[in-house]
Design a protein around this nucleic acid. Structure first.
Lengths: 161, 161
DNA sequence: CGTGAAACTGTTCACGA
DNA sequence: TCGTGAACAGTTTCACG
């Protein structure tokens, strides 16, 4: 029995100890074997399989992915780009930019700028042409770009429990 | 036969068509079966297994993870925090902050601020105490925080080939 | 890189708590 | 409703050529 909450945009979910443990393990290693995990947890593999399937359906687990070292793949440059966008076209603009190949994050923010974009490039030239493309867009009033000198941490995982 | 490059911090790697295809697929679905993939690609499962192991050893593949929807887990708040840090203590500070539970990214940047931190919280109170903790640190000269109103995109994957 | 075989794993389903 | 155990098909993994 647990309290259901509904005041955030996306509804929260009831997770028991098995779900939580499974989330932690899949977050640590998405290729882990449910069977071995099941033994450790003293439940049946079928149970873990059900839980996993359910959490994928509910959208709690968005996907299973390999995290790559982009600098080893030639993307040595990360840029943080902030843009002030004409309010009427903000959503439209965001959708556009979110689909760009280089972009790993797009955030709507409040303050001096409206959008923060994080993107990865192979070279200064690539970043430069990305920015020029942006500025061509008449919806954009101004941009500010921070060049990232060093990616200290970049990991989509946080401690959830 | 491919050209080897060595002018970036981390060395680049030679990848053939099999490696590249494998990376793309594992990035799409880390739990995909190498056997089925092998059939599609007309190579043996053992080959794909070898390639995968090699790329993990080389650090090209950093890890396999489940991506979660944090807003469904109660982390409705994302903050982008910029900090101006006393230069002598920058590296030390960054290591510290990178280990914090809520932090998904830490970037070294040039400009008005030295560090950009992206972190997720369950509530304004949590964000607030995170910021207060930061400001207690005498190494920090000033901070600027953007509250994220909407996460338009947040996906560690970019198009690599 | 491929083969082949052994070991392991995912997935399903009828049953029972 | 939900977990279980057993069964089978699918998969990984390894030594070797």
């Amino acid at each position: 029995m647990s309290i259901s909450m509904s005041d955030s945009k996306k509804r929260m979910v009831d997770l028991d100890a098995i779900d939580r443990r499974l989330l932690i393990e899949l977050t640590r290693d998405a290729r882990t074997s449910l069977r071995r995990l099941a033994e450790e947890m003293n439940v049946s593999p079928a149970t873990l399989h059900n839980r996993m399937t359910r959490m994928v359906q509910e959208g709690i687990i968005k996907s299973f992915v390999a995290l790559l070292d982009y600098s080893k793949l030639g993307f040595a440059l990360t840029g943080i780009i902030m843009a002030k966008v004409d309010g009427k076209h903000l959503v439209e603009f965001e959708k556009e930019i979110a689909n760009a190949d280089n972009v790993i994050a797009v955030y709507d923010v409040v303050g001096e700028y409206d959008v923060v974009i994080i993107a990865k490039f192979r070279s200064v030239e690539e970043l430069d042409s990305f920015l020029k493309q942006l500025l061509k867009n008449p919806k954009i009033e101004r941009t500010y770009t921070s060049i990232v000198l060093n990616v200290v941490k970049e990991d989509p995982r946080i401690r959830i429990f």
